[in-house]
Write a protein that binds this DNA or RNA. Structure first.
Lengths: 226, 226
DNA sequence: CGTGCCCTTGAAGATCTTCAAACGCAGTGG
DNA sequence: CCACTGCGTTTGAAGATCTTCAAGGGCACG
């Protein structure tokens, strides 16, 4: 495996020459916790690929409420289409922990995509994945109860960014009740109550901006018993 | 304007030769009302472009409830990525009125995309639009009340498939309370009550599988006053 | 003329939000 | 080192919103 293996989502199937060209033209950048990478509505300047750390992408609702669209982890792409089309970023991106990433300015990206169409194909694949996720999310919001949605979200976070610890899986980045609420379309109060109940039942262990899943099966049962 | 202008979403920016090649290799097909074009989970056989009529795309929730993802109208693409990747259709497509469309079998589509990369770019653009829509939908489901969501949905339908009639805009295809409920994450009962109230207030006129918007401003006010 | 499908409406009650109050840890500054 | 302060969290109580269930009406189509 190459040392630049985290780039596989972007560069898989690209010729050796294309990979080299892409990596050579990439710019490196670091972000502190809570630092903003870009804001919703700004004209897209670049496409980003995460090396390490984590971003959260949010959208503002009409009434000012924030909605958490997704977390972006190592190897994930971000703002691919907005950069290609030169349109506005559809979300705001903020680091939830110290983060390092590569970026390709808009014009560089366009040139790379023209010379190496497989890169565009890979961006298309990434977008398709996000579309699937978004449809799944909308379907769950439309048909499931809050408890199911929160349980599902925890299970998903465990998969995406879970770190095994003794007797459980820790979601390995800061995660507040408020953020869980913004991911599931509910309030921080309801999330707090659910976590308290699940803690009593031995399904999770909850701390300040920390959640550890103690029983995956238990949470799956919560998802089922609508 | 070309007689094949409905194909602009797919063929804009494609060379004259590419447009000709694409149209030559397209297969024509007709559907009756309620006829199924493809089902969620089947391996994708082709990409579709609507000439006339309307499809509805639905997804099944875990508990068997149907969710209405969107309506597809003339000029709209459908199943582009699933066909390119040879994966499963993510939704079921059903005609809600007599419909005619063009289709490109999977292998033909792949060849066209290779020879004319702009076609793939156009598919990427279409998918991006759907991603935006889906995110908007999820955000609304997460933050807005039922009345707002139903009102918004009616306004959107008026834009997409509205036909001016005396004193209003008719949504120009069959549209049941159940379908409106499946679009907005509520029940047919709640939709029925809302439409009855809005009819009394003079905002809409509702019939069997028919809705006419009498006051766009009135519905916009419903959206606002959360 | 019946039958099926779509629609309406009432009543009861579950689910979830809202508001208010208070707790406790983490980091800061005295 | 301690107190202060901010922020994330917890919990109770009240009540709004929406669903669910039940019953019935009416139009369209065979």
């Amino acid at each position: 495996m190459s040392p630049k293996d985290f780039a596989s989502n972007l560069l898989q199937g690209v010729s050796e020459e294309g990979r080299a060209a892409a990596l050579k033209r990439a710019v490196s950048r670091r972000l502190d916790r809570k630092q903003v990478l870009f804001r919703e509505g700004e004209t897209a300047a670049a496409m980003y690929l995460l090396e390490a750390g984590r971003l959260k992408l949010t959208q503002l609702a009409a009434d000012g409420q924030e909605v958490l669209v997704r977390f972006v982890g190592p190897g994930d792409l971000c703002a691919g289409v907005a950069a290609l089309e030169g349109s506005a970023y559809p979300v705001t991106a903020r680091a939830v922990e110290p983060t390092s990433l590569l970026l390709w300015p808009r014009d560089v990206l366009r040139e790379l995509c023209q010379r190496h169409p497989q890169i565009q194909t890979n961006i298309l694949r990434a977008i398709t994945g996000h579309l699937q996720d978004s449809m799944t999310r909308a379907r769950e919001l439309a048909t499931e109860r809050v408890a199911s949605r929160v349980a599902r979200t925890l299970l998903r976070l465990a998969q995406q960014s879970g770190r095994p610890v003794d007797g459980g899986i820790l979601v390995d980045h800061p995660l507040s009740r408020q953020e869980l609420a913004e991911m599931t379309g509910t309030t921080l109060y309801t999330v707090s109550r659910l976590l308290s109940a699940w803690e009593d039942a031995g399904l999770v262990e909850a701390g300040r901006e920390r959640v550890t899943i103690r029983s995956v099966e238990g949470l799956e049962a919560v998802v089922e018993d609508e």
